[in-house]
Design a protein around this nucleic acid. Sequence first.
DNA 1: CATAACTGCAACAGTGATGTTCCATTTAGT
DNA 2: ACTAAATGGAACATCACTGTTGCAGTTATG
Lengths: 197, 197
Amino acid sequence: MCGKGDTLGTTRPLRADAERSVRSILEAAERVLSVNPGASMEQIAEAAGVARTTVHRRFANRQALVEAMTADVVRQLDEVMDAGRPETAPPLVALHEITANVLRVKIGWPFAMGLVFTGADSPAAEGKRRVDDRCLLLLRRARADGLIDASADLDWVRRVFYALIGEAVHGPDSDLEPDALAQRVVDTLLHGASPRG
Amino acid sequence: MCGKGDTLGTTRPLRADAERSVRSILEAAERVLSVNPGASMEQIAEAAGVARTTVHRRFANRQALVEAMTADVVRQLDEVMDAGRPETAPPLVALHEITANVLRVKIGWPFAMGLVFTGADSPAAEGKRRVDDRCLLLLRRARADGLIDASADLDWVRRVFYALIGEAVHGPDSDLEPDALAQRVVDTLLHGASPRG
DNA sequence: CATAACTGCAACAGTGATGTTCCATTTAGT
DNA sequence: ACTAAATGGAACATCACTGTTGCAGTTATG
């Protein structure tokens, strides 16, 4: 949790108020950019309640700011994956848990999440790969348990999983509790729209 | 198929070569903007093989150009829906047919399709609503036939359908034949990843 | 409290996109 | 072949965003 020090080599500890500024800017950038990805630094600064120069003080340029956002989101995703215990917990439990928590992240950081999962971003790419791997591992375990068809293309299943998560936060249901949304996502992932027994 | 005349009130028929320019620009814009949504008019002009001034002659501004693209895509979607006969053909047949054809459109016009289905675009909104309605009608027929669970939220199913189409054109499978992709999409929509009997 | 860090504000130069105009040349239509 | 339309190219003004600097005032921290 430090500002310009991340981007440049020098890592001098920030003062408490500067740290608060960094948080404000990151959160404001998320709010603004999720509505208008082409918004100016000034709009972000205004939304953060700071001067434009302060934004430039903390982040060398737009790219640095965006990278800080994606890095933050990737960190949250790592935590979420840890909490879900995808390699030890029962697959269905882990699937629910992880889905709900990822949804929580995605609801708060839709713009940064979109970048991580669509953009060919260099710094976030390795983090995404890590998440992808653990997700695939979980799906493999689910397949071994008979939850997923033995001949299924797990890469396709994973991408469908991501797409469903992305879709769940849209529309009129985004204000539902993440657990309810996760229920719907996992259910759709495993059974589609088919009639239930 | 006319250029600036669409946007403004005057509708004077374009000469043949001007018509060709309009097409070149629209297709070039799709190519360029699908890679970089923030590309300049000059990059689009270059990709179209025309001068920048020609682009401005045919489209008053960026917005007019983008709206022409979305309008074109919506027109294609309308044709696709007609061809699929969603209100008369057997639901499963129509679902396959429409999916395959929409995929064909989406592969060629990913940027414009993205705008139509995510952006709150005014001119394209009514066209999208028309497509949405016919899609919902088809899903209702599929549900009546027992292909879809009786208690399913068809609005959610429709959004999942769109998301699956969007996902099918990504990744390493985008070069597959649209029919094979459609097979996968419809199968996943109806049955998810569950084991098959 | 004394210092160092942080902030807001104003000003500045640089950049790149935009939109327009004019004109010489080429091209389509009839 | 004649006319009207279309094009390329250059030039121009405008504008918004960017990134930087300097300074005076405020705030955290030891």
